[in-house]
Design a protein around this nucleic acid. Structure first.
Length: 234
DNA sequence: GCGACAG
DNA sequence: ATCTTGTCGC
């Protein structure tokens, strides 16, 4: 049931924190395992880009995750998988990963191919402790990851130019933790940050390429759609 | 203490 | 995230 690329994160998953203090300690401990020295796959490489997303049912405390693999060149869907689980952590800004990752990993493990790049909903480096969802998922699976968020979280940015492809730094004080990226002309930007084993330039290039027709990357759109269906049928 | 706060 | 109708525009 294990995908070769999703390395044995069993140990971390067994020791899942049960409160906020433990969760922050896990982030502080794992942060040094993030690899920021790799460029990551070239945009347009021959391989798959996988989008992951989750949906919740508050009444039943159920969470459904989806992983959808797209061919990196054609953006055609080549594989998809879902998983359903019990919500195991509340939503706390800065601790999103603890709510989403277990079910997301279950879904990823059900793909028939190892992803070459994973696109997460949310942040990676752009995080209060520099260890957001995308960073965490990258470290646990070993896979290259990036984060694409719809909101600037607590960070500041100057609006990028109006043209598609325009960017501006996403700032935590003086530090650039990511970029605001305009994926469509005249439309609100998305917020890109690196996760694991991918640099910021390529993270933005991949995001722009994946967002050829809409504001959000096709990976995100496909995963969002699929996890909602999975939740409805659970 | 108050407000803000990925999904 | 989720609750939710119509509506403006290409």
């Amino acid at each position: 049931m294990d995908t070769p690329g999703t390395i044995s994160c069993d140990e971390e998953l067994r020791h899942w924190p049960s409160d906020e203090a433990q969760a922050r300690a896990v982030q502080d401990r794992l942060r040094s395992s993030v690899r920021l020295d790799e460029s990551g796959p070239q945009p347009g490489f021959a391989g798959t880009v996988v989008g992951v997303d989750v949906a919740y049912d508050d009444e039943r405390d159920v969470v459904a995750a989806a992983a959808v693999a797209l061919d990196a060149r054609s953006l055609a869907v080549v594989d998809e998988a879902t998983a359903v689980g019990q919500v195991s952590f509340p939503y706390v800004p800065g601790l999103l990963a603890f709510r989403e990752i277990p079910t997301v990993i279950d879904a990823l493990a059900r793909l028939t191919r190892v992803p070459d790049l994973v696109v997460c909903d949310g942040y990676g480096l752009a995080h209060p402790r520099r260890f957001g969802l995308a960073s965490h998922l990258g470290v646990l699976t070993g896979l290259p990851t990036i984060g694409v968020a719809k909101n600037p979280f607590t960070f500041r940015y100057a609006p990028p130019g109006p043209e598609r492809g325009a960017t501006s730094p996403l700032l935590d004080g003086d530090e650039e933790v990511g970029r605001a990226l305009r994926t469509q002309k005249g439309v609100k930007p998305v917020f890109v940050s690196v996760g694991h084993r991918v640099d910021l330039d390529r993270a933005c290039a991949h995001t722009l390429r994946l967002a050829a027709a809409y504001r959000l990357p096709e990976t995100t759109r496909a995963a969002d759609s699929l996890c909602r269906k999975a939740l409805a049928g659970a």
